[in-house]
Write a protein that binds this DNA or RNA. Structure first.
Lengths: 127, 127
DNA sequence: CTCCATACTTACAAAAAAGTGCGTACTTAT
DNA sequence: ATAAGTACGCACTTTTTTGTAAGTATGGAG
């Protein structure tokens, strides 16, 4: 019996596990940042774009569609011109965002420890 | 003042933030699974390879090097032949792995809710 | 004597992700 | 009259990530 088969925590370790797809959306470069931005409340598309440094319109749109497809984000469009669209977290999305933020908060809190290691390891490599 | 600038949670929202690099390693396709696997204890390279369905040797090696470089994983090599190398989490790595696992546990627990949305959204698109 | 296992590395190829620039339809500000 | 803002879609290119296959040194099994 392999480790993956008797792993009590489920099937993530198995290739072709559908959970890996959701994981991909939530942990994608922009997915993480969208989720934590929306934790601060409803945002319009271009507000998100300005809030998240470096996203292109294309990537932001795609990420929002992924998260909407997973039921983590709700899109509400008003039929006016110029267009007006609002994005907010669903109940599911709030839970997801909390987990993601616990990760990012930890990273930011430990950034100094980690970059210590960067210098140390670079030194080892160079000698 | 932009939203990114007065964001009290730090600089992740700014492009070129070094924390984004760590985030990338931890949330990379294989980084997540390596951290979780190593939560179960020390593993040899090929044990990890068998435990994590679908990793190639190349990707596993690279992922382990990233995590080692960030100080989350410790590598210990015995100078014998055939080679014998063990990987384990550092104290920092244990903390990181806990956050990652809270994310994956949530995903697996909510996989059904999420795939409900998949069917719903597909239906909307097709009509 | 050949094959397998170990823990990788390297070169190359394929696939996926990301970025770029343009178009849209209409309003408001200049 | 022209430019800017809005929320994207589309076509195209570049970049990044991932996979594949092979090579390495050595001992033990068949």
């Amino acid at each position: 019996m392999t480790m993956a088969e008797n792993n009590p925590r489920g099937n993530l370790m198995a290739m072709n596990c559908p959970s890996r797809e959701v994981l991909k959306h939530m942990t994608s470069k922009w997915g993480v940042l969208v989720l934590i931005a929306l934790e601060g409340g409803t945002h319009r598309f271009s507000e998100l774009r300005r809030a998240i440094g470096g996203v292109s319109e294309r990537m932001l749109a795609q990420t929002l569609q992924w998260l909407e497809g997973d039921g983590l984000v709700q899109r509400r469009a008003y039929d006016v011109v110029p267009p007006h669209v609002e994005y907010r977290l669903t109940a599911l999305g709030v839970e997801a965002a909390q987990r993601v933020r616990s990760l990012t908060d930890w990273i930011e809190a430990n950034a100094l420890h980690i970059s210590d290691n960067w210098s140390k390891n670079r030194a080892e490599v160079s000698k």
